[in-house]
Design a binder for these strands. Structure first.
Length: 146
DNA sequence: ACCATGACTGGGG
DNA sequence: ACCCCAGCCATGG
């Protein structure tokens, strides 16, 4: 577990944000970092998910109630890790979510953001609670289409 | 206490 | 378009 209370707060914020990713959708480590207010700490988001244990550990946040599989790299690829089966497990879990994972030329497991990407500016829960400062500004944000 | 190692990323070469 | 690199900072030796 993290050393400081500050770090603990960051971990919890990340877990809560990840819990808001809808089933059948994915987002990036970097986007979660932005959602919790620390855009430079995408790497630490990865550390948070790595720390998730099973529900048997009596931890408030665990691999059962936090959909860790819905977070992938900004390249649209399931991040490889020391344990190769880890990425494979994530692909299986995503498949269970109804997300199609394709295999790239180098064996990378990739997900199409155009179809499965979830990138809100703020957390839906905050919006529902009216915690969002007033922000009625519009600009041509996205406009892609496959 | 110091150093190396990552579930990362955007920018430069 | 691909590779490299400086920030990032929790963990483990």
């Amino acid at each position: 577990m993290p050393r400081s209370d500050e770090a603990q707060a960051f971990f919890n914020a990340v877990y809560r944000a990840v819990q808001e990713i809808p089933r059948g959708k994915v987002t990036t480590y970097g986007h979660i970092a932005k959602l919790v207010g620390t855009p430079q700490r995408a790497r630490q988001v990865g550390i948070c998910l790595k720390q998730l244990g099973s529900s048997q550990d009596n931890a408030r946040y665990n691999s059962e109630n936090v959909p860790w599989q819905r977070v992938i790299s900004a390249k649209g690829v399931i991040s490889p890790r020391s344990e190769p089966s880890g990425a494979a497990n994530q692909a299986v879990a995503l498949g269970h979510d109804g997300v199609t994972v394709t295999i790239g030329p180098l064996g990378e497991r990739m997900v199409d953001f155009a179809e499965y990407g979830w990138f809100p500016r703020i957390l839906p829960s905050e919006e529902a609670q009216g915690l969002v400062p007033s922000d009625e500004e519009d600009e041509g944000d996205d406009g892609e289409g496959a």
